[in-house]
Nucleic acid binder design. Sequence first.
DNA 1: CAGGATCCGGTTAGATACTG
DNA 2: CAGTATCTAACCGGATCCTG
Lengths: 116, 116
Amino acid sequence: MDKKSLSEDCLRNLRGIKDTQDLLSGKWKTSIIGALYHNGKFRFMELKRHIDGIAPKVLSKELKDLEMNRLITRKVRDTMPITVEYELTPQGKSLNKVINAMGEWGVRYRELMMKK
Amino acid sequence: MDKKSLSEDCLRNLRGIKDTQDLLSGKWKTSIIGALYHNGKFRFMELKRHIDGIAPKVLSKELKDLEMNRLITRKVRDTMPITVEYELTPQGKSLNKVINAMGEWGVRYRELMMKK
DNA sequence: CAGGATCCGGTTAGATACTG
DNA sequence: CAGTATCTAACCGGATCCTG
């Protein structure tokens, strides 16, 4: 194999990695998706409570990004006062392999680092 | 189940997700790991060539981050001129599930978006 | 070759206060 | 409740040039 160039397949895969990384960019998106995945739905403040330390402005912006990329939906229910529900789309749910892999790896990594 | 709190397991998992996300933060780390995973080893300039558009300073910094977190190793061989080889640690290799999941999802996501 | 030094602009994210 | 407004500091990443 030529050391200087990777195969077409690899390149496509690398581009996939980068695409995914870009969609999940920032400090919070994977946490948001993870939380929604575990719980199904969340309202704005619930989400905020579960994601430790996030500012409302930041959460709001992240949610908009995710919505734009069709990974979550935003549903306004005209209760009084209004409530808003965020939920994963099928597209967003299909990220579970990625998110789960991250969760499992992260847990194991932390354990390993503890031992040292 | 209480709507207001997630189980211990979920919380641990969410923390794992966040840990992983933090370790892979920035625009480039997953691409670097992906490239190393496919190829085994890379020298600095090889890596730079394969990662489209990255500046040397940035690549250098990303590599240091990864090394600090024990995901890659840096080996200097005293050839003339010196050459440096970067390689994944077992720890770094164990990220393959995450990286692969990202790659696969990204490829599928792109196809789906193309259709619309 | 493998990076470091420097300069710089844009984005990100945090705190706090405020609104419909 | 579900956000927006404002201000700021930090960081990120790019370009270019330089060095052992």
